[in-house]
Amino acid sequence: MARDVQITFDCADPAALSAFWAEVMGYRLQDPPAGFDSWDQALEAMGVPPERRNDASALLGPNGSGPRLFFQRVPEGKRAKNRVHLDVRAAPGLEGDARMAALEAEAERLVSLGATRLERHEPAPPLGTGHLVMADPEGNEFCLD
């Protein structure tokens, strides 16, 4: 049986990191529960104190497509390289110089949003198409592929 998947990010600032990933992925903040105009209004009604209202955030893909991205506040910082990471498909169908130019353009956009560029891997045919390794504002590695 196929299952839905949610990708969870441990982080220090769920609101800021979800805003970054919304821009990267073209996702949107999950709507508040029915009957509420905002998350602040919903959390107030649930009795969540103001200092706990940035404990979590969730993003949904356009029209519900793609996995839900969930961001949860944790007390510890990132300690090591991710063993699982996202590959953001920024140049599907492109090859060679055109592919790398598209990846570079997307990297430049993401750096302006707070990402860090880590490495460039040149195309190495037949299997290596080239990619860029990046980190989000909290240091989580991901690839532009």
Rank of each mutant, 00 (worst) to 15 (best):
S57T: 11
P32F: 04
E104G: 01
L103F: 09
Q41F: 09
D31V: 03
A34Y: 04
P67K: 00
F142M: 09
E108G: 14
P62N: 08
V88Y: 12
F142A: 07
A19E: 05
G114C: 10
P14E: 14
D37K: 02
A124G: 08
E108D: 15
A12I: 14
W21Y: 06
V5C: 14
R79I: 14
R53P: 10
P125A: 06
M1F: 14
E108T: 15
G130M: 04
N140C: 09
H85K: 09
P125E: 05
H85W: 12
M46C: 07
N54Y: 15
A91I: 09
F36Y: 06
S38E: 06
W39S: 10
S57D: 10
H121I: 03
D31I: 02
P32G: 06
A107K: 01
C11W: 15
A80Q: 08
P67W: 03
S112M: 03
S112R: 01
V24G: 00
D55K: 06
K81P: 08
L94R: 06
A91P: 11
E76N: 14
L132F: 09
D10I: 11
E119L: 02
A2C: 08
K78L: 15
H85Q: 11
A90L: 11
V111W: 10
A12H: 15
A102I: 10
G26L: 08
E44T: 08
A107I: 03
V74E: 14
F20R: 00
E95F: 08
L86I: 12
G128Q: 00
V5M: 15
D97L: 05
N54A: 15
R117V: 02
A58Q: 15
H131R: 08
S18T: 10
L127V: 03
P33M: 07
C143K: 00
T129P: 00
A107S: 05
V111Y: 11
L118I: 04
A98T: 07
P32I: 05
G35Y: 03
G93R: 12
P62V: 07
W39Y: 10
A90S: 14
S65G: 11
A22Q: 13
N63H: 03
A107G: 06
R120F: 05
E106N: 00
G93E: 06
R117D: 03
R52K: 04
E122P: 07
M100I: 01
N63A: 08
P137R: 12
I7M: 14
G47V: 01
F36T: 02
D10P: 12
D136N: 05
E119W: 01
D145S: 00
M25L: 15
A98H: 08
P33G: 00
G66F: 10
A107F: 00
T8A: 13
G64I: 05
A22P: 13
M100C: 03
M25R: 14
F71L: 11
R117F: 00
D55G: 03
E141K: 03
P92W: 06
E108M: 13
S65C: 10
S65Q: 14
P50T: 04
T8M: 13
D31G: 01
